[in-house]
Design a protein around this nucleic acid. Structure first.
Lengths: 119, 119, 119, 119
DNA sequence: GTGGTCTAGACCACG
DNA sequence: GTGGTCTAGACCACG
């Protein structure tokens, strides 16, 4: 899986990596139990500091998406908890996006079609 | 229109205000041409620095949501440009949210229902 | 409030600080709403790196014990969520401690007396 | 006695095994003088490195919980020293747990009831 | 002035 | 070899 950093983005690097890994897991590009690159390998590949990647892995671990052990490095968890509900933050974000979409003249149907494509 | 600041949020205050005003315009609570409170009045009401509100208004103006003039203060634009497409950032955000929703066990239908509610 | 670091402890520095602040809040030495020292001030006082203190504050924030804002620095939250139950980790730890206490010849009553003193 | 490793835990494997053996001795599941599985057998059973089990046994021996000899392997000591007091580390840990319990809204009585259950 | 992020480099426990 | 921790130093957005 290829991780791309947008250095001009306001989103911190560790968060960009986090987001792309989460999307990779969701899309199936990263399979349950699959090995992630080591902290050092990913840092080298992206051209950033190991601490930054380490921060990403700790976040993903805390969120329950991956697990780390000292022997094997990081792996995608094969039993990611399904809360069944959207987090409060994501709900707020979604509300904001829907509002902006409306003002941009995007219809409800177009938004739903977008959901279809992205899901 | 009442603006609420979540002091625990990581979203900067100026951005929280901006988001709520945009949502207010989108929902119709703020009508096209409607007068916004002055920077000073809004800052006083929320209990924050005038600089922060000023930053919000500048952002909203630059985004084309409001217009300002020295005489009348800030007003909602009555001809907000309808690009017809979702901004690149919002599209990326939506993709992230959809990914996380999927992993949380939320079905496509539930997401669409959420869109229905929020739109 | 005075923070003491045991440099020979296996407990990471950021966790030692975290634990002492939590105990300070619990004991009332740190009051709800009370200002914590700035990251820089605390780092200087203890003689450690700012990053380490920053890590502590981020952890405490995420756990809901404190809040940070860029203007005022960090403050003890005045509405710390009361889950009403012991975390799984603490329960496991308590079980381990009770087991070791039994083997050390400490009676159930002595343990309860200890709880009385510490609470 | 069945040893269970929580691969998601931050507690090192050798320490998880150690804790479970100590709890087994305390509960009486492991009797004084009882033979423990060989390093090799336990490692095989759990599916981990023999070095890890070996580390556990060395720690337990050093703590005075078990004794080893080349002929008979490891056995639970039948005269475990009863210091009569809680170790400094355990006392500190207990203080931390009590503090967190208080902040979580757990009463002194509930904690004591928990001690009753666990003892 | 404040916390948040990031780097370059190092050492450590675990396995 | 792996992730986890820490330092010294820097820059940035927010307010």
């Amino acid at each position: 899986m290829i991780i791309r950093i947008d250095e001009y983005s306001d989103v911190p690097i560790y968060m960009q990596i986090r987001n792309q890994i989460v999307m990779g897991i969701s899309s199936g590009e990263l399979k349950p139990g699959e090995q992630l690159p080591t902290v050092r390998a990913l840092a080298l590949e992206i051209g950033i500091n190991t601490m930054t990647v380490s921060k990403t892995y700790q976040l993903l671990k805390q969120e329950g998406y991956i697990m780390t052990d000292r022997k094997n490095g990081a792996r995608v968890r094969d039993n990611i908890a399904k809360s069944g509900v959207l987090s409060e933050e994501n709900r707020t974000e979604l509300r904001r996006i829907v509002s902006e979409a409306r003002l941009a003249g995007i219809s409800k149907e177009e938004l739903k079609k977008l959901i279809d494509e992205l899901y």
